[in-house]
Simulated scan of single mutants.
Amino acid sequence: MPKALIIGAGDGLSASLARLLAKEGYDIALAARDIAKLDALVAETGAVAHACDAANEAHVEHLFDAEGDAEVVVYNPSYRTRGPFVDLVPADVQRTLQVCAFGAFLAAQQAARRMLERGSGTILLTGASAGVKGYAQSAPFAMGKFALRGLAQSMARELHPKGIHVAHIVIDGGIRSTRRPETGEDALLDPDAIAETYLHLIRQHRSAWSWEIEVRPWVETF
């Protein structure tokens, strides 16, 4: 059975993706800082859970020592600090960059090294509106997500010709969850629908690979 590794797993998009890929016949490995929150998802999907701080090099190396044979690797962690630019706390800004961008580099590098040996694999990086437009009082998140997008584009240009599919998914809008219920007809992205887009990327034929796909609710402004 093929294996999928989802880093930054929780009860939203990553949970929908884990359920869908398990249904499609994948062995699932999940990584998160707090794996206790994954108990129900592990039981539902038969997944293996690993405690991992995605911005910690040693943690990521250990994760890939255990799950490095994954054919699909999804990087989903995100960290955000907001506030007036002049009031931002440098340590919080640094953490945002570490989780959003540096952690993606660590995971993608570990994945790419192993995939290159096989000559195949898929690396998917979860982006956000902030990766294409910087919002007021959200400079750190924009910095992190812009860096993530640049990482994906650079990796795609280098690795696509070597058989590794790299794609960046811009999530342009809020995702429906128990903490963020629907506020109107399809006003929030359905995490199950986003997961279907990820599956489409995984299944794309190499003659027509996408390096980036943007998804948004039909009522979302551009």
Rank of each mutant, 00 (worst) to 15 (best):
E57L: 15
L20D: 01
G121K: 01
H62P: 02
E158Y: 08
D11S: 15
V219F: 10
E24C: 02
A195V: 12
D92E: 13
R203W: 14
I175D: 09
E67L: 03
M115V: 11
G68I: 10
I213T: 05
E71C: 08
E196P: 05
A128D: 04
L199W: 05
G131P: 07
L21K: 03
N56V: 10
Y26Q: 05
I35K: 13
N56T: 02
D53M: 08
L159T: 08
Y198A: 00
A9R: 07
W218D: 04
E57R: 15
G131A: 09
C100Y: 06
P191S: 01
F146E: 01
H200L: 08
D34H: 14
D92G: 01
L106A: 09
G103A: 14
T197R: 03
H168M: 03
I213H: 05
A51Y: 06
A40T: 11
L201P: 03
G119H: 08
L188Y: 15
V89R: 14
A49D: 06
I7V: 09
G103V: 12
Y26F: 13
D53F: 13
Y75W: 08
N76A: 09
V170P: 05
R82E: 03
V89Y: 10
V215A: 00
A70R: 12
P161S: 02
I171F: 12
V219T: 15
Q137P: 00
H50G: 07
A130I: 02
F105P: 06
E117G: 13
F146Y: 12
Q137W: 14
